[in-house]
């Protein structure tokens, strides 16, 4: 399954939030979407999973415009994990995960043993089996996030859209969740905050700044100190870790950054 966004724009009250963004995710790829808060990552993802209708441009799943596909069919192809609040109404963890079966169910269909097994498997994969009967509202932020990933797994979609899936998670679970998603081998696009994790797990990266796509390519091509300085306004040093062969980025506060190199471009000399 591949996903294509072409020249997608979305604005609210004359403020351009997403500005002519083009993005492509090929079958089996893990693509990261980077950018500081307010850069339009979430809005772009929301146009992709059909919550926001773009003012211009198209989003296609395997060449078909998502707005021409029935919502149920889109939900069978694409699972979404977003920042979610259930508010005042409580469900058990089992019930929340079971909702992932909704797009596969007609109005007369009941939950089958197969469905319950999918739920159990998914909870086991995110290490939440012991929480199956617990109330969702009593979970910590990280536990909730793992449950929502279990729901996405149960949905058995062919593309996974994640909006900051590791927010609120301990570093242990940040690694575990991304490791899990990576090993699924499912086509994935994820908005990520943590640049080191993005560098480690993503095949390709897109970088947004003020709604515009400012860079794209492999982590090695994209994550350069000058770009990080430009987009995130911090100093950094980028090197290749001898063990993993992946990039590691070290950040410096303003005064240390100046002392290290005094070079406005942010490059370490």
């Amino acid at each position: 399954m591949n996903l294509q966004a072409e020249n997608v724009s979305w604005s609210v009250e004359a403020k351009q939030i997403v500005d002519a963004v083009t993005l492509a995710v090929a079958e089996g790829e893990f693509v990261g979407l980077l950018g500081p808060n307010g850069s339009g990552k979430s809005s772009l993802l929301r146009t992709i999973y059909r919550i926001l209708r773009p003012d211009a441009g198209v989003i296609e799943l395997d060449g078909a415009n998502v707005w021409h596909i029935a919502p149920r069919e889109v939900a069978r192809q694409m699972a979404v994990v977003m920042q979610e609040r259930t508010g005042d109404f409580d469900f058990s963890v089992n019930e929340i995960v079971m909702m992932g079966r909704n797009p596969h169910k007609g109005i007369f269909d009941r939950d089958t043993i197969h469905d319950f097994q999918l739920v159990d498997d998914a909870l086991a994969r995110v290490d939440m089996t012991d929480f199956a009967q617990r109330s969702f509202l009593t979970l910590s932020g990280g536990e909730k996030q793992r449950v929502l990933i279990a729901r996405a797994l149960v949905q058995q979609a062919r593309i996974l859209v994640l909006d900051e899936p590791t927010n609120h998670l301990d570093i242990h679970y940040q690694l575990e969740i991304l490791e899990l998603v990576k090993n699924l081998g499912v086509t994935t696009v994820a908005a990520l905050h943590e640049l080191n994790l993005a560098a480690f797990y993503c095949d390709r990266l897109y970088v947004l700044k003020a709604g515009r796509m400012v860079a794209s390519g492999t982590p090695e091509a994209v994550l350069r100190p000058d770009l990080i300085r430009d987009v995130y306004d911090v100093w950094s040093e980028v090197s290749t870790h001898p063990l993993t062969g992946k990039l590691t980025i070290t950040f410096f506060p303003e005064k240390v950054g100046h002392r290290l190199n005094g070079n406005n471009k942010g490059q370490i000399i």
């Binding site: 999973y49 979404v80 977003m82 259930t86 019930e95």
Partner: peptide, 16 residues
């Protein structure tokens, strides 16, 4: 069930 969790959740679970 999906709607009471949230509009966006309902939509991503296939509710029109």
């Amino acid at each position: 069930n999906a709607l009471i969790v949230g509009d966006e959740t309902a939509a991503t679970l296939g509710v029109d």
